[in-house]
Design a protein around this nucleic acid. Structure first.
Lengths: 201, 201
DNA sequence: ATACTAGTTGACCAGTTGGTAAAATGTCAA
DNA sequence: TTGACATTTTACCAACTGGTCAACTAGTAT
């Protein structure tokens, strides 16, 4: 016990990286095992199926996202509108960083990618991603609500519908950046997102 | 010649339907052939590979989209803002219709789905989808430009950037609808899209 | 020492994958 | 009728898929 880097941990790390960059179907159990340096028998000691591994991987991905993006972006050290801006700017930064580090394509959002690949055929995975989205939407909704109270966002804005729209827009531009393989499309989109919230720049 | 329903046509129809609902990897060549009522040998008589079939399928999909959505939505019989509204309302209608007809999940945008599934591993397919997106963006841009001239959209709006954003938003809400398996999320989003364009409703 | 357990291993499985090759059949013009 | 060409069919391939299983190893508590 108390090993620094257990097989299970390495397996989850491999799954996060490989599935983010290449999706679900294109990454086989064997490849996952090779990447993690374990044998296939061990895989099925830790997870009953590839789908189960994916569900756990999604939890890890959500924890990472919360730590690296949600908490920093929505920290209350700046006014609400600035938090929304940071949400978009940080996403842009991560996409650019990932593209350059991995030396490959724009990878986009791991949740969005898997949602569209598996949404119509893996209901459990679909639900987990829906859950992750809903948690982000809740944070955005609270931020919009706060901005309404400070008068930064006009009263007629519906926080729930708008929060949903803001995340949709974020996912949409990430899809566009991936499709065009160009992170520059992400630059400056925060001002348009604020316009969705009724902010007349 | 002049057969009413050639093998190649049936194959493309099958590919459109199956790949839209289940994606690329989950639909095999054999299943495609069964669905179209042909044998696998015939498949490779018409297309050198599954990837080639997909490229042609994307062209068909774009033609369909243009006929069923772009041309009706952006017809010049109504003012520009109303055209943008129709673009969103028609998309909503198609998603609802498809879900009920097929009796299954929300399918989302065929281009968006394939873009995220294959974007990082099939450059040619990625490019074709990028092309399709760009053609739609061009139509939206022209519409925004026209609305600026009629004064419906304020002068400070950048037509190129905003058109890109509007399509991204459309793709984003389609992703969201698919993830939540609920077409109701698509309702009323046209007003938020107009807010992106600087329209103060 | 013993027994229990978590972890690891390699051999194996049936089914499927995209793709090939050649023979058979159908179609049409000269 | 013939020859040329498009189409269809059947049989086949190596590679790979997710998953199983029994045997083995090592640490740990009794």
């Amino acid at each position: 016990m108390a090993k620094v880097n257990t097989s299970k941990e390495r397996l989850l790390e491999s799954a996060k990286a490989l599935m983010h960059s290449r999706g679900y179907a294109d990454v086989g159990v064997q490849e996952l095992c090779n990447h993690a340096g374990i044998k296939k028998g061990s895989f099925y000691h830790f997870f009953p199926s590839k789908q189960a591994l994916t569900l756990t991987t999604l939890e890890e991905m959500e924890a990472d996202l919360t730590q690296k993006l949600i908490i920093p972006a929505f920290a209350k050290d700046v006014p609400p509108l600035e938090r929304l801006r940071r949400f978009f700017r940080l996403s842009h930064a991560f996409q650019t960083e990932t593209k350059e580090n991995q030396g490959c394509c724009v990878l986009g959002c791991p949740f969005g990618n898997l949602a569209l690949e598996l949404g119509s055929r893996e209901p459990e995975i679909r639900q987990r991603i829906e859950q992750a989205f809903n948690r982000i939407i809740a944070v955005i909704r609270d931020t919009i609500q706060e901005a309404k109270e400070t008068g930064d966002i006009p009263a007629f804005i519906d926080p729930d519908q708008t929060a949903q729209a803001v995340l949709s827009f974020q996912e949409g531009i990430l899809m566009m950046a991936k499709t065009c393989n160009d992170t520059e499309l992400l630059r400056g989109q925060e001002e348009i997102a604020l316009r969705m919230c009724g902010v007349v720049s």
